[in-house]
């Protein structure tokens, strides 16, 4: 018991840290869960308008982004394995690659949204307001859901960059890497939400 009897020793509990992260991820899922609920209600009421709305979305860009995010999830998982095997350099490169893939996602999204704005397909535009009620809601949901997801992508990128610096100054190392694991978990969450958004918005025509 001598190690616990020393006062002011650093408390470390990797399992507890991960439990906390999983709980936090759960709240994030519930946040989007509220949106999925709203989506379900309106899709039920305006099934046809949602079908027509989904036809307006660019499936190619959406698919590309899905692939990009899936790969980024893989690279972040690989970076954790790398640091657990003590390969700091590779781990840092993989984190950086993940951030780059996130940038690719955002650039794609920029072009996709940009095209929508060019065609006046944004909430509150004169064109959209002339649509049927279901279509107005569809485009509202499309922008709100993908927008909130994009916000999470940006937060995820900030988290990953913090991880990169912590890897650099060896705060995260071979023996103590729960932070990177938690950061990776957050990135998987960002990926997972997109996996739900993509079929709901683009594919259910």
């Amino acid at each position: 018991m001598s190690d616990v009897a020393i006062k002011h020793d650093e408390h470390r509990d990797d399992l507890g840290a991960k439990l906390g992260m999983w709980l936090f991820i759960f709240t994030e899922l519930l946040l989007f869960g509220g949106l999925f609920l709203v989506y379900a209600v309106y899709r039920d009421i305006y099934a046809e308008d949602f079908h027509l709305g989904a036809l307006q979305l660019n499936v190619t860009l959406g698919t590309l982004n899905t692939v990009v995010l899936l790969i980024s999830s893989m690279t972040v998982a690989m970076s954790i394995t790398a640091i657990q095997r003590g390969n700091k350099k590779l781990s840092m490169q993989l984190v950086l690659l993940t951030v780059l893939l996130a940038c690719v996602f955002l650039v794609n999204k920029y072009f996709e949204w940009g095209a929508k704005f060019e065609h006046d397909l944004y909430p509150g535009s004169d064109l959209v307001l002339q649509f049927k009620r279901g279509s107005i809601i569809f485009f509202g949901l499309y922008f709100f859901m993908t927008g909130l997801h994009m916000f999470h992508v940006v937060i995820g990128m900030v988290v990953l960059m913090v991880m990169w610096f912590k890897l650099k100054n060896t705060t995260i190392n071979k023996d103590d890497n729960v932070l990177l694991e938690n950061g990776g978990l957050y990135w998987h969450l960002v990926d997972l939400i997109w996996i739900f958004l993509f079929p709901l918005l683009y594919l259910v025509t």
Binding site: L30, L31, G33, P123, F144
Partner: peptide, 21 residues
Amino acid sequence: TPIVGITLLMLIAERVFKIGF
């Protein structure tokens, strides 16, 4: 709490961006 979080966000979006939830 996340449910009220998203609800309040939707309210904000409705006021700011005219997304008619």
